[in-house]
Design a protein around this nucleic acid. Sequence first.
DNA 1: GTGATTATATTGTAATGCAAGGTATTGAAA
DNA 2: TTTCAATACCTTGCATTACAATATAATCAC
Lengths: 115, 115
Amino acid sequence: MIPTQMLKGVLDGCILAVIGRRETYGYEIAEMLRGYGFGRIAEGTVYPLLLRLERGGLIEATYRDSAAGPRRKYYRLTAQGQEALRAFWAHYRALSSAAEALWQDTEGKSDEQTH
Amino acid sequence: MIPTQMLKGVLDGCILAVIGRRETYGYEIAEMLRGYGFGRIAEGTVYPLLLRLERGGLIEATYRDSAAGPRRKYYRLTAQGQEALRAFWAHYRALSSAAEALWQDTEGKSDEQTH
DNA sequence: GTGATTATATTGTAATGCAAGGTATTGAAA
DNA sequence: TTTCAATACCTTGCATTACAATATAATCAC
């Protein structure tokens, strides 16, 4: 299980990415994230985050009836949301590169100690 | 600049990694992280985090005089800290893989929309 | 002695994942 | 009919943590 703290500041971008693929709703987004390997993301996490993104103008929603259950709130990216998605991944890349560089050095050091 | 929220839950592991390379102190750790590309990590971030790791038994410290400035507090990993470092990277790998998989799909989708 | 650099530490704030709880719809089992 | 599971949305309050701001102090150049 990925620690909750490690998801902070990453989940919002990932949700933007999921919505960017195609229109979808909260319940399904949680399932998708699980499918991608993020682990079970609580509904108490997903829904507040979606509302935050909606209020921020990054996504917009339409309610639609479902054949099996209550109506769904389908989200799609706004132009602003697409821009935010790009910015998010640029930042993620920066973090990822830094972590990777650090990890390389750490591994080298472990080898020295082991051998 | 990497958003501060994105650093949450990552910084502690990165600091463990830096200390794992060799004994070092707070001020230098902040400089190293900057060198790796994490951006400027504030002192108000580094010192509380070091104290937290120390209290948690993941690192231990020795004060040493410096030739140019006040004394330094040198940290090194404990056995528990080395274990925590391994666990951290395992979790980071999981997050990284999930994000990468999601990003791949997103990129494909962008292509479709573009072409 | 004045400022710059080096160095550690504390306090309070803002952001956010999530547990816990609530509401409501559909369909199958009892 | 009642009950349960699965689906679907939302809110409240808590715990964690990066950081700005601030304080303290030692060394060295001017």
